[in-house]
Amino acid sequence: MRPVQISRRRLLGSSLLTAAAAVTFPGLGWGRQYGQGGGVPWSPGVADEPYYGTEPLEFFSAAERRAADAITARLIPSDESGPGAREADVVTFLDRQLAGFYGRAQRWYMSGPFPEPLETQGYQAPQTPAQLWRAGLAALDDHCRETHDGREFAELSEDEQDAVLTGLDEEEIEFDGVSAKQFFDFAREMTIEGFFCDPVYGGNRDMLGWRYVGFPGARYDYRDFLAHNGARVDIPPVSLFGRPEWTR
């Protein structure tokens, strides 16, 4: 068999792409040579900080932010058992994620064609997450205005909101140009991320999500608790930021 040839034209384009990636991800850097007796390259006190997701960029317009916040508040509602996604500021998490590399699907294979997939073929939407949210939120508000006397999603009652979200989830409501089900699934997935991620990413404010379920967060030593034998291990959470008490 003959080897597959590499396209020269694509190769030329690729070096630009790599350069752009290096600028976007400062941790990536250029290729380097190591070894030849030089030992492990390491400097004390230097570590890569979690740099992504925390960009102070904004993705949502005011209307989009209202709708997105209202969706998260129904997916993980607040009640007497504890706070929900709104209190945990999940919408800020969404805003930062969608403004960053994740929103751009920068690491995903996004080339077409995009035929109708099998159920077993995973995520096949032609939109990036940012495009999916933008189109989905607009379509959601359009749908609500048409069906609810001109009111947008955030202006509906909680019961009305739940009915609309159920319609998306169960594929009873469809949008033009974007899959309503795909949008709903993505909204649900990212709301859970924003409720349970480390607070460095803008969600899970005050570690509310972790406190709600009893997760102690970014700890790394539980040896003292191994012999719990079925009794509750109840220790306060700590974030990559530390704990509020540490800085008071």
């Binding site: 979690p50 991320e193 480390d198 970014a218 790394y220 990559l240």
Partner: peptide, 10 residues
């Protein structure tokens, strides 16, 4: 490092 490793999202 332990200060950054337990980051589920990242």
């Amino acid at each position: 490092p332990t200060t950054h490793a337990p980051d589920e999202l990242r």
